[in-house]
Design a protein around this nucleic acid. Structure first.
Lengths: 132, 132, 132, 132
DNA sequence: GTGGTCTAGACCACG
DNA sequence: GTGGTCTAGACCACA
């Protein structure tokens, strides 16, 4: 259930952040729960053809946030829930703020904005939830 | 009406890109139209306490995109409209796509997402439409 | 017979040089000969919608080269011929050198290059000899 | 095979454009192919005694054109071929157009022009194909 | 007045 | 190691 991750090397978002964000969302949505083991650094790196250091950096980031827990000699696991990491809306809020700011600068009405979002929501392939 | 720009030096987005994005939105929303002169490099630099070269980089970027037009010895102007640059929705679409993807990963329903966006839209200070 | 000049404000070549080059070619090809009067600065500026200072700069350039002659209170005239200005091939040589260098860097054969030039020569509208 | 570049600081063409043009020609002529790594910014800067930012500007230009590909933390590479960038004749066409226009203004015959070009082609030092 | 180029040097993010 | 960004300041070309 570690699933497959998707990376876009061309995106402005660095790969290690893309990975961290995807793991955060897996947890926030309950697809990974407290105590679940994460794939090893090497496994992810090999599977996706990225640098192990990049994976390691993502894990370190999440450990620092208290989202993951390091276990000596064993796989990392999902840490006990805290309020922040367990609230899906908190994870998506920065993107919403950004969107609303841009919409205001573009003088879009609320209706125009919601219509556009709704339309993309429908079109989005519900197959797998392609990560960023 | 040279407008005031807002920069967030902490943001991952470099200043020159923040500026370029804001100018793009001014044009897309009709606040700047074809032929309008842009403030001089030095004026923007002085007003916002940034280096002229940083401003110049933003202008160069927009000129390469065909959004602005260079006029030797005179101020840069808004270039004749092209299809993409004149469509506000095209400018905001990438952000919408990103938002919808994240929402799907978080297993949010359409209603949850639209509610959240709508609420932020209301809260957003309608004072000035402060740029990013 | 001052003809019409053509300017491309977007070209890397500054306007005053475009003008000077066109006048030089008119002389080298015998379309303007010794003693002929040139249009006034104002006339050219008004006709082509460019800054009088730009025209003036072109005239000054050609006067410094000895190609034109300034006559107090009267129109500028074509100066008596010198060997340099009267040799058409000398005027076009820099462009040829540039072309040959690029062709070598592109590993083009002589035949490929001559074919390409010949083809463009044919296609070029012989209507008016559009200046640069 | 990082190649040697040649710059003419006196030329009206800025150094970063001279560099970009030379790289474009290396690619168009197959001396650099898709996926090849380019020399590092610092390497070129040190070798030729120019500022790293100047080199960086050339790379940025080519990346914007889609000729080069940025790889975070690693060397830039030649991007997958597009139609324009892979056609040598397309790169040299603007110079040919310019040459033919000047030749027409000078009332040169096709024979005169081709002879002149051919003669320069022969004279050009075949030593190394020295770049602009 | 306008924008463009280049330098020298510092600092950062990424892998 | 890689490229990116920004600064401060100088100098130039064009109109």
């Amino acid at each position: 259930m570690p699933g497959r991750f998707h990376f876009n090397p061309q995106a402005p978002e660095p790969i290690y952040r893309q990975l961290a964000a995807q793991i955060r969302r897996l947890i926030a949505s309950g697809q990974l729960i407290e105590g679940n083991e994460l794939p090893s650094v090497r496994a992810i790196a090999a599977t996706h053809g990225i640098n192990p250091m990049t994976v390691s950096k993502a894990y370190a980031l999440l450990e620092a946030e208290g989202v993951l827990q390091r276990n000596r000699g064993a796989a990392m696991t999902v840490a006990p829930a805290t309020q922040k990491s367990s609230e899906p809306l908190a994870l998506i809020e920065p993107t919403i703020v950004q969107l609303v700011e841009q919409a205001h600068q573009l003088r879009l009405s609320r209706e125009q904005l919601l219509d556009a979002v709704s339309q993309h929501f429908t079109n989005h392939s519900p197959s797998e939830g392609k990560p960023q």
